[in-house]
Design a protein around this nucleic acid. Structure first.
Lengths: 207, 207
DNA sequence: AACCTAAGTTACTTGAAAGTAGGCAAGGAA
DNA sequence: TTCCTTGCCTACTTTCAAGTAACTTAGGTT
């Protein structure tokens, strides 16, 4: 690692990439606070201490910004759920691990953008691409549930509806969670997941 | 009931009110399909076979349309949850009944608008009013849960997080449910609620 | 007959935000 | 030195949908 004050071409490329990510992350935060339409490119630029045309130096247009935010959020969810898989645990254990990381991701910028903003403002083309990603995540949930049912570690149920119900309960956290509130994401995740695992009805067994 | 072809003043008043509701309901459907911003007043007018200024004859502006759609949806949720209460059942039974009607409501126009569109496009003033209504519904869930815990019909848990988790799981139905799909709302409600009540973990007891 | 009101219409204004044209400064390259 | 590229700016155009002005027509009222 040289500490030369001069930048190589590679340095400049990665600086540019960092700035692009900063644009996206700042936009994601603004979208999450104000909504997509209520956020102007001037707003985003102001938060970055630059002007609007600078934004266009890093991204094609506003639509691309949202598309990328949601795509990154979905990639995070997808890869997190893959990382957790195949560590030799039961399907039940893996599902729990996936659920925990799911909450972590949807409570911060890109992940939150997936839930709060969604793909509604995008063109049909972009939506199709993102739906593909969503589907992969959904199938991950379903297949874990199916495996769990087969193993006996998960109660028999319709895996499709169960997957929607779980992801719904966890996604919803992104809508009401506030970093200023008195509940931190880890605690929320713990309790919500406990409810989903054990149900509202008391169990005679204490296991 | 006279069948005179002439209309009384009361007739005309109620016809006007019906038309206003038609504007709101049509708008809600369009909002649910396309989103608030992607729906122009011209779109709504076209669906009603009139022109845009006609819409303004029935409502003040676009914001009022959304406000009313969400307000009506929330009123439906609130009054449904009150109707169900106090029939002498356990808190658990009442909660189940509330959950069933909750799904019914959020899968059709005004109710769906509450979840799919939300209040993000509104002014802070309107949002405050609607948040008040939402809070009442949330407190209904919480108090049922608290009562259930006290009675022993519901498992001990944090009522706040539990209420959010339940309403989240059920609200999410409004996001993926499609009338064209092969799952009808009653079936969805039955299965999701069963999962929330019993949990993912198998129970040794078959009760 | 003269008039009013309800319920529409056509044709316009307006405003906000997306997106663009073109300039300028700094820093390395020839 | 001269020139090119990068990165950012000021100032502009464009677009699109919300909202409005002012007319029309049909019925009922006096």
């Amino acid at each position: 690692m040289s500490d030369s004050p001069w930048k190589t071409a590679a340095d400049r490329r990665s600086e540019r990439e960092e700035k692009r990510i900063a644009v996206l992350r700042t936009a994601a935060q603004a979208f999450n606070e104000l909504g997509y339409h209520a956020t102007s490119l001037d707003d985003i630029a102001r938060r970055l201490n630059v002007t609007k045309p600078t934004i266009y130096y890093y991204v094609k247009n506003k639509e691309e910004i949202l598309f990328e935010c949601v795509r990154i959020g979905l990639e995070m969810l997808d890869s997190a759920s893959n990382d957790v898989t195949g560590h030799g645990g039961s399907a039940y254990d893996e599902l729990v691990a996936v659920m925990i990381t799911y909450v972590d991701i949807v409570t911060i910028d890109f992940g939150m953008c997936v839930i709060r903003v969604g793909e509604e403002p995008l063109t049909e083309d972009s939506r199709r691409t993102l739906r593909g990603l969503k589907r992969r995540i959904d199938l991950k949930f379903r297949s874990l549930i199916e495996r769990g049912i087969a193993e006996g570690s998960i109660v028999p149920c319709d895996p499709k509806i169960a997957a929607f119900t779980l992801s719904g309960a966890l996604s919803w956290v992104a809508r009401w969670y506030s970093p200023d509130g008195d509940l931190d994401p880890a605690e929320i995740a713990r309790q919500s997941i406990a409810l989903l695992l054990n149900g509202l009805r008391p169990r005679p067994d204490m296991g």
